[in-house]
Design a protein around this nucleic acid. Structure first.
Lengths: 109, 109
DNA sequence: CCAATAGGTAACCAATTGGTTACTTATTAG
DNA sequence: CTAATAAGTAACCAATTGGTTACCTATTGG
């Protein structure tokens, strides 16, 4: 039974809080792995694994520089998440609208 | 070692393709469980489990009607996903901008 | 009333995940 | 040249996940 996510699944990649934290960190600019890892309580190999997932999902890219590897944001695919979520905009707006309407029609006392 | 996602984690909830498909289905309107389940190749109990995850994340709500339970979209929290992704907008726009600029500065031939 | 229907839950299983430590490879400082 | 540094990979492990079948409870058509 193969249940693994398509290995480039961006939704799967961003589901993990550590990986989201890495992405958030990279918004402040590119970073080599050690510096990145020092911000987390888990080991460097664990971060390496997360980076591989992010790389495979093409959410980050790697630039070699000497013995360091800088990771930087490659945010194109976060757009896919944004687009997916946007499809629901009309629904959450309707909900807010009907809540508002409801409140207006039932003023307390 | 407890590694489970916060049980109301919306990112975790939408990471699963079946759960996203359920949400997508519910954009067409509320649906009882059996009707919902008939659209998938997995068993009804599997769908029940997914619905529980979605319910816990408050992405759907349940309305009892006789022996049926209608599930409907409660899309407020998808906004959180949209907001998170939007934080990266400037980055993907910059990327597109710099790609464009690059192309303009290096016209082929 | 009661058989059928709707749907949640329990128990179980195999695959996946996220972490660890140990090892390996590439690069550079001295 | 060589010790030290940067970072990926291997092997392993326990917890979690997503699925299954079997069962249970609530509701209703006849």
């Amino acid at each position: 039974m193969s249940r693994s996510a398509s290995n480039s699944d961006v939704f799967n990649a961003v589901a993990d809080p550590t990986r989201r934290a890495i992405l958030d960190r990279l918004r402040r600019g590119p970073s080599p792995v050690n510096e990145l890892a020092s911000g987390f309580r888990v080991s460097r190999p664990a971060i390496s694994k997360h980076l591989r997932v992010l790389r495979t999902a093409r959410l980050v890219r790697e630039k070699k520089d000497g013995r360091q590897r800088f990771y930087e944001l490659e945010p194109q695919r976060i757009q896919e998440v944004a687009k997916w979520a946007e499809q629901y905009r009309e629904f959450w707006q309707n909900n807010i609208a009907s809540l508002k309407q409801h409140l207006e029609q039932s003023p307390e006392e």
